[in-house]
Nucleic acid binder design. Structure first.
Lengths: 195, 195
DNA sequence: AAGCCCATGTAACTGGTTACATGATTCT
DNA sequence: AGAATCATGTAACCAGTTACATGGGCTT
């Protein structure tokens, strides 16, 4: 139940209402960490209040409820942070596709892998720009916030996708196995990369 | 509906039964690509058969059904492979935790981040060994170079986690900001009043 | 007054996980 | 004979998504 802890973490940073939390998710977490819409967030906030992890600390002008973390909530958050990561089952469509590449014939594979490497590369440069902007907006000497960390992770991740796609392409090129058959050479042709 | 295409891809590589597919998922996809248990796979195979994407091509000795991809299935698989990646919402507990780091005080952050970098590092060396074994034990003509690709992605991914965690730690050390306070200017991690 | 952003909620549905259930074959 | 593995299924539940619904306040 990671949604709960994500909310706890965000509220521990800044007390805020459900609407703001929804935006915060959208902006910082939905890229690489976690995702949730408002229809999931509001009910969870109620449950968390019932469980004593958070409480309404203020009411905004239009009747919005500003939530803050209780002591019990802070304890729970820390407990979770120090508990072992029960790895969440992966759902990565990009990687899935790369694994399914061998179902296509070589020309298709070439086109697709190049395209994948390219689009990952574009996202890298996109994030490079975003990082520049973040750094420009941060006064010298001041530490950057979450956004900088998120962007850095994103950049590195897309770099990884790009480089891995290139590497796979290279493997497939050198292996040049016939379409449709289970490959015979790919395994033995692999030994050449860094380590 | 990526499960469908994952199954399609696996079956395009080798016709097999639900049991084998379940294992294949576990072995190769559940690391970084996609996840599914048998209770999800069997019903989906039925639906796919009903939709004409796959068909029973053989029956094993103990009444197992060996599925193969139909022409329609192959067409659909290719269509999917070339369609734009509708990025799947992320669920990454590790990254989520790293984003929540600031809710702890500096000593806790240090301990945790080091631990995270460490455990990622362990997984890197673990995968290094796995890769060695795959490369050593690949008899010419075997089921997949998939495993090699998967392992490579995994290694690079954990490397990324490790290095990023180290980098975050470094940032936090040099910034050395006091516990609990959010710095004011940085990116989206800004304190704002709720309206 | 019209339109946008703020703000909160519920309902229906889909996808995914856990648990329950069964039986055949192979290995020791 | 007993255990492990092969093999397939269903049911209950939980998490997450999409759609529906409403109203206040702010700006133009």
């Amino acid at each position: 139940m990671s949604l709960r802890h994500a909310l706890l973490g965000l509220l521990a940073d800044t007390p805020q209402n459900g609407y703001d939390l929804t935006k915060r998710f959208e902006e910082t977490l939905s890229g690489h960490a976690w995702n949730a819409g408002h229809s999931q967030i509001y009910p969870e906030l109620k449950r968390m209040t019932a469980d004593g992890l958070i409480e309404v600390v203020d009411e905004g002008s239009r009747g919005s409820k500003v939530y803050g973390v209780t002591d019990a909530g802070r304890t729970e958050l820390r407990r979770w942070m120090f508990s072992p990561v029960g790895d969440t089952p992966p759902r990565n469509e990009f990687v899935l596709r790369l694994f399914m590449l061998s179902s296509l014939d070589l020309p298709d594979v070439r086109v697709l892998t190049e395209r994948m490497a390219e689009s990952s590369g574009e996202r890298v440069t996109g994030l490079d720009h975003a990082i520049e902007q973040i750094e420009a907006a941060t006064p010298a000497g001041q530490p950057h916030g979450y956004a900088r960390f998120a962007a850095e992770f994103g950049r590195r991740y897309y770099e990884l996708q790009r480089d891995w796609a290139r590497w796979v392409l290279e493997q497939l090129e050198t292996a040049h196995r016939p379409a449709g058959s289970t490959n015979s050479e790919a395994g033995s042709a692999t030994r050449r990369e860094s380590r």
